[in-house]
Amino acid sequence: MSTYKTSDFRKGLKVQIDGEPYLMVEMNFVKPGKGNALYKCRLKNLIRGTTLDRVYKGGDTLDSADVEEVDAQFLYKQVDTFVFMNQETYDQYELSAEQVDDGWKWIKEGTVCKMLLYNGNPITMEPPPHVNLKVEYCEPGARGDTATNVTKQIKLETGGEVLAPLFINIGDILRIDTRTGEYVERVRS
């Protein structure tokens, strides 16, 4: 673990406060009048997603947080947990449903996700921005109806649901934007 001096402070720094990892999302240097320098920081808790506003003075330090991002493949779901494997080291990680959050809707066996490790332990995971998933169930498609502004509820092979155009059928492969949870296009029918 190393320490950062205020002169090292910048956006994107990963630091440790009260034993938890934070990302410096904003850093503003202020120095009123003939006064001492102040460093106004907005810090995002990498575990809980909450933010913290703190002001530091020249001479203060923050410990660095041992945070790294790795590629991890989704293996399978156990009762309450999701099991992933580090693509490089083959280490396995178990994430709780809370840690996976909405991500379960977009991952199936083999999906490679971005995982954030803190002191070697997983804290969050992010599915790839786009995934292709098979339609498990939907009402039958209306042939020839290619309008995209009318939608219906679709159940995907992962169990997640999206709204998609009426012409979609069971077995179609759909491209989904995981950041918005929206249908992008039909990849294969």
């Binding site: 001492n36 106004k40 506003d53 703190r54 002001v55 530091y56 003075k57 020249g58 001479g59 203060d60």
Partner: peptide, 11 residues
């Protein structure tokens, strides 16, 4: 409650 002066340096 929203902003705090942090760090160990005594001022």
């Amino acid at each position: 409650q929203t902003v705090q002066l942090a760090g160990a340096t005594v001022i």
